[in-house]
Design a binder for these strands. Structure first.
Lengths: 146, 146
DNA sequence: CAGGATCCCGCTAGATACTG
DNA sequence: CAGTATCTAGCGGGATCCTG
């Protein structure tokens, strides 16, 4: 096993983690990012809300806590805070505290977070795009006489 | 109450579904596909396990229940069955029962499921790829004296 | 404004046992 | 083999109150 190309070594290193294995850390990571609020937070931070047409402008957008809270309709402060904390811990976003009169806290995606944003946004768009199809499939499934 | 404002109608027409809204069906769909087992099932069905090198060959791969059970280490029959049922109901995969001596059941992605597979696989790969980075970030976060 | 802390309910995931 | 059925513990997550 002496000769191994650099590419092979790199490939091996990449396969180091396998989310199919229960004990693999990447399984936990997958579980963590496979979360409704995570996907929505990332989607919100990655693109501006009011004008979704001009998406992926390049630079991440920063948002305040209250902005996020409003954008993600129905989220509780607990879940929002919790989600933001874990995302910050994982290095997906940064939390900036500005000591203004009432304190101002802004959140912004890191490069790492932005890389995931692209994927997550795709998931969200998929859900919105294929909603009709899925709905139709469910109806077919539920009304089959079999 | 039957009358809807013009703004509401326009909003409805423009972006029929918006996962940011709590009441939108796509929010539920997003929640459903934002699931550990969903992502793993889709990842498993989309590409062969033993030889992941020859990925995305074009036609979906069919797998038996027991195959999936083995591939997704740590999954309970309940969760696997439940996940497969909902995915079937949503039209993401097909369930085929072959009345052999011991009954044989195979699962296979539909075109719709395959379209999602690409995205989900990206998420899984992302988790495996950036695991080290995330782990490092966590350590930094936990050991900061601030 | 942006959370921290606490209580507590509900659903869900897991374990176990049974079946066609 | 490929599930279904049942029971239960655990915790995800909402509601509420409080703070810098």
């Amino acid at each position: 096993m002496p000769t191994m190309t650099a590419a092979q070594q790199r490939a091996q290193a990449k396969l180091e983690y396998d989310a199919f294995l229960a004990s693999c850390p990447s399984r936990q990571l997958l579980d963590r990012i496979s979360d409704k609020w995570v996907s929505l937070v990332l989607a919100a931070l990655g693109s501006d809300g009011p004008n979704p047409g001009k998406d992926c402008a390049g630079q991440p957008r920063s948002m305040r806590y209250s902005e996020l809270s409003r954008r993600l309709a129905g989220v509780s402060q607990k879940m929002l805070t919790q989600t933001l904390r874990t995302l910050e811990r994982d290095g997906l976003l940064t939390r900036t505290v500005t000591p203004t009169v009432p304190v101002t806290v802004t959140y912004e995606l890191t490069d790492l977070g932005y890389s995931l944003h692209h994927l997550m946004r795709g998931i969200k768009v998929w859900a919105e795009t294929h909603m009709d199809e899925v709905l139709a499939n469910r109806e077919k499934y539920d009304t089959r006489t079999t």
